[in-house]
Design a binder for these strands. Structure first.
Ligand code: ZN
Ligand code: ZN
Ligand code: ZN
Ligand code: ZN
Lengths: 162, 162
DNA sequence: CCAGAAAGGTTATATAGTAACATAACCACT
DNA sequence: AGTGGTTATGTTACTATATAACCTTTCTGG
C-alpha cells in the first residue's frame, strides 16, 4: 500500500479494489472465460494504483510480488485479456492502463486525465457518445470504435491554483 | 511518387502538397519562426504520404533523400517544431503524424481513421468541441486539451463491403 | 488417465522516443 | 569583417514500449 491518490483520499480504497475484483470474477464466470491468478493479480495492481499504470511498471511490481522474473509477454497477454473483457482500458496518450468501473457493458474509452495528480476519470456520457457518432456519420464515416482523451485539471487539483 | 491513397484519388495531390507548404511558409513568416529546409522536408514528406506517418518511416525517407544518415533526434525535433506550430497533428493510437489542413488557427486533434485504407480525416466540428468541453466541465474538470480518435471505415471503403 | 486447448515462460528482437553533448548555421552588434 | 549569443542540427548512446517465435505447464472434457 503506497501513497493514496489525492482525488480518491475520501474513499475506502480497499473496498473499491475488492468490488472491482469481485465484479470481474462474476463477469468472467458468466462469460465462461478464465480470470486466472496472474490476470487477477494484474487487475488488482491496476486498481490498487488507481492511476494509469504502464506495462513495464506493472512488470516490475509483478516481479517483486513473486520472486520469479516476469517478462514483457506475460504482462501484455494478461493486459490483452483484461482489455478484451472490458475490465481495463488503455490510455493511448500515456501508454498506460486503468481499471474500468463499469465493465458489465462494453463501451468506448473516454477519459479525463489530470495533469497534476495523474488521476484518470472515466467519462460516461451517452449524449457525448451520440454526438461523436453523429459527427463521424456526417462525414460519411462508419464507426467501429472511438477514444477520447481530455487533459486538464481535476476538480480537486483546481482548488487553490486559480 | 508512390501509390495514391484511395480516399484521395480524385484530388490533385501535388497541388495539395504545394498549398500546404506555402501556407506553412506564410504562417511561419508571420510568426517569426524558421521553417528550415529540414522542417519543410519533413512536412512535405508527411503531406506526400497523405496518411499518418511514423517517425522512423520518416527517418528512413529522409535518409534515402539525403545520402547522409539521419538519426532519431533530428526527426523528432522537426516533428516537435511542426507540432508546436500546429502544422501537423500526432495520432496517439498509431504513434504517427499527419498534416493539418487548417493550421492557421490552433485547435484540438479530432480524427477519423479508416481501418482499411489508413486515411486520417480531420474532423472539424465546433459543436463537438463544445460538447466535449461541457461534458468535461460537468465532471468538474478544467480542460487544457483533448484528442478524439475514431476508427472505422471511410466513405470510400464502405462501398461494396456491406 | 489422456489428448487437445489454453495459459504462461523464455529468449530474442522490433519499434518508439529521449538524454547529453558536439558542431554548424544564423543573427545582432560592433 | 569580427565577435559572441542563440538557434538548429549532428552524433552517440540509451531508455521505454511492444511483439515474434518457440517451448513448457496447466487446465478441461472425454
Ligand atoms: Zn470503462
Ligand atoms: Zn488532479
Ligand atoms: Zn488540424
Ligand atoms: Zn478508407
Amino acid at each position: 500500500m503506497t501513497e493514496r491518490p489525492l482525488a480518491c483520499s475520501q474513499h475506502n480504497h480497499d473496498h473499491c479494489i475488492d468490488d472491482a475484483l469481485s465484479a470481474a470474477r462474476t463477469l468472467c464466470a458468466e462469460r465462461g472465460v478464465r480470470l486466472t491468478d496472474l490476470r487477477e493479480q494484474v487487475l488488482a495492481l491496476i486498481w490498487d494504483s488507481h492511476k494509469p499504470l504502464g506495462a513495464y511498471t506493472l512488470m516490475e511490481m509483478l516481479s517483486e510480488e513473486s520472486t520469479r522474473r516476469v517478462a514483457p509477454p506475460t504482462v501484455y497477454r494478461a493486459l490483452d485479456f483484461l482489455l478484451e473483457q472490458g475490465l481495463i482500458h488503455r490510455i493511448n496518450r500515456l501508454n498506460a492502463f486503468v481499471g474500468c468501473p463499469s465493465p458489465e457493458h462494453q463501451h468506448h474509452s473516454h477519459f479525463l486525465l489530470c495533469n497534476d495528480c495523474g488521476v484518470a476519470v472515466e467519462l460516461e456520457s451517452d449524449k457525448l457518445d451520440k454526438d461523436i457518432l453523429s459527427a463521424a456519420r456526417n462525414a460519411g464515416f462508419s464507426v467501429e470504435a472511438h477514444s477520447l482523451e481530455v487533459t486538464g485539471l481535476c476538480a480537486r487539483c483546481q482548488t487553490g491554483k486559480v
